[in-house]
Amino acid sequence: MLRSLTIDPDKCTGCLQCEMACSYENEGVFNPAKSRIKVFTFHDEGRFVPYTCTQCDEAWCLHACPVDAIRMNRETGAMEVSDSVCVGCKVCTIACPFGTVNYNQDTGKVIKCDLCGGDPKCASACPTAAITYVDADATGLDKMRAWAARTDNAASASN
């Protein structure tokens, strides 16, 4: 059974532990600016919303890549960028309708959530269980997927 990150913004206190854990795991530094998960702040409403790649079925990034640098990891279901193949063209960053593939000017490659190979550090770092790693058919994900479908040109197309 594939698992996926499920986010419950109501539980988020904005402590940014997830961003710290993510940047440390993936970039070796505690630097929220280098995190693949991002907590958005809604000042007026006093709300925090953690957000990252949903590993969507449409896989816009994967299909947009001209050199086959993005592949699905069959064990985790994550779309993973192969740094050695990526040429840094950034087409995936404009093709992803969620804004969750980002270009890193330091490396000339793109970064996106890869579920840390099946042990996502953001989820383990979250003290309030706002981010959990659960069975893929758990509630919440379907809703995000539904929004993904809305961008699809032809929701009935097979890929």
Binding site: W60, K90, G99, T100, N102
Partner: peptide, 14 residues
């Protein structure tokens, strides 16, 4: 800009 540009697509195409 390099961060979250793709969401512009999401907003337009949705």
């Amino acid at each position: 800009m390099t961060q979250h540009i793709g969401v512009l697509r999401g907003l337009v195409q949705g």
